[in-house]
Design a protein around this nucleic acid. Sequence first.
DNA 1: TCATTTTTTGAATAGCGTTCAAAATACGCA
DNA 2: TGCGTATTTTGAACGCTATTCAAAAAATGA
Lengths: 253, 253
Amino acid sequence: MTTQDRKAREFAAREDLFLDTARRLILSDGLLSLTMARVAKACDYATGTLYQHFLSKEDLLLALSTRMSAERVSLFCRAADFTGTARDRMFALSVADVLFASQCPEHFRLAQYVFTEAVWAATSPPRRQAALEGSQPMCDRVRSIVHQAVTDGDLPDRGLRNLDLGVGPWTLCLGMHTLVHADGLLSFYDVNRPYGLLLQHIEFLLNGLDWKPLVTDVSSQHVAGKVEWLCSEVFSDACDREGIDKLLAMLAA
Amino acid sequence: MTTQDRKAREFAAREDLFLDTARRLILSDGLLSLTMARVAKACDYATGTLYQHFLSKEDLLLALSTRMSAERVSLFCRAADFTGTARDRMFALSVADVLFASQCPEHFRLAQYVFTEAVWAATSPPRRQAALEGSQPMCDRVRSIVHQAVTDGDLPDRGLRNLDLGVGPWTLCLGMHTLVHADGLLSFYDVNRPYGLLLQHIEFLLNGLDWKPLVTDVSSQHVAGKVEWLCSEVFSDACDREGIDKLLAMLAA
DNA sequence: TCATTTTTTGAATAGCGTTCAAAATACGCA
DNA sequence: TGCGTATTTTGAACGCTATTCAAAAAATGA
């Protein structure tokens, strides 16, 4: 039995090595020039060994994307678990997403590619399952925040279920990430500071849902102040002074 | 000169043939199994001839995506140009997008793929330019609707420029399309009727922007009624009874 | 120590995008 | 109409990559 355990551990470690290496190669040379042979060679293994871990190249990319989003989930959970009004916590979820985008910009490019029909279809069912389950905690937090707001009387439910009410901010974030990564699009239309606008629109949307306490000042300055406060309050260990400045710069320009 | 003209016309016609055929092949066999050789063969041309039109396979896909979105732009313009309050017209833009999604569901799958970094980078600059310019009319409409709302005093601008205020609905729509096409995701999280929720959240967001006249009833029934009204009022020639029913079914389930 | 099982290897395979020299065609001019 | 030239088309050949699999190597355990 102990032999089995050791083998399993070694196997998992090797998978980590493959994924780390793939990530490094993507960062240095881009997604385009990533090949299975290169990943294997960079780890001093034969190409065939990679296929002991991944059904296909797409399967590897999905695994990498899932693993990278663990950090996102962790920021998300921190945002959801701090003590504050449900509304502040919901807002903090979006801030977590923007913070993650500033810390790990390559994740959304990869995720966008991986969720493409052509790529998704070439992945293995277990990895797909793992990808969905990996983001389950984020969904749970959204649900529970909405639930609390409704039971506290801060948010009228209008007959909608928890996640149906939470899908708005989720969709806003996702859409903005997509816009940001469509190269040249925002500059063509002269839309600057997309993530600053995102957070302002989150506030607008929450106001429109009549989510109390309503925010009367939705200026970019006020949003920036709130973000700075959240960073020191909630994300302090994930975000030093330099990280905060980088985030604020992203919101402003 | 007339010979040149004829040649240009024939060249354009052949490009249409290639794109029509590619679309047909994608519809019948999927994006995965589309190959340049197959497209050429299906049109009784040699593979090399395709490359007189398209720099690469990605270039062809981008051209196809751009051409398909012409229909979307046309629905958009119709929505923007009808006589009504600025707010109704802004809402109509989202309805146009949902209507387009019901009429041409494959477009967003393709667009999502094409705007991926890996694909986008392999397209030719002129086609990229054409893709951006093709959606310019949609942006112009958004800008002008926001502008009218602000000058009419229906919408406080809060120091934001026209498109900065219009980017919210845009982002909501885009994010929801993305969610819908991430296979298995919405069903995993038990989110039904995504497009119905989208339109409700558009109303919430516009309310949150304090865009007058405010809509007090944001129930799915009320939204459905408004959609039906818009269909007969604005989209009547793009949408017969069958089309309306299909759209309403999409909103309800 | 050695027979057996498991794992790794990397050359071979297959398929696709892309190119380009040769062939075919179109063109304009006498 | 016939002919030399320019243009266009062709499809086999090339290069690259994902994937496979038979042979080699390593690990196992009696």
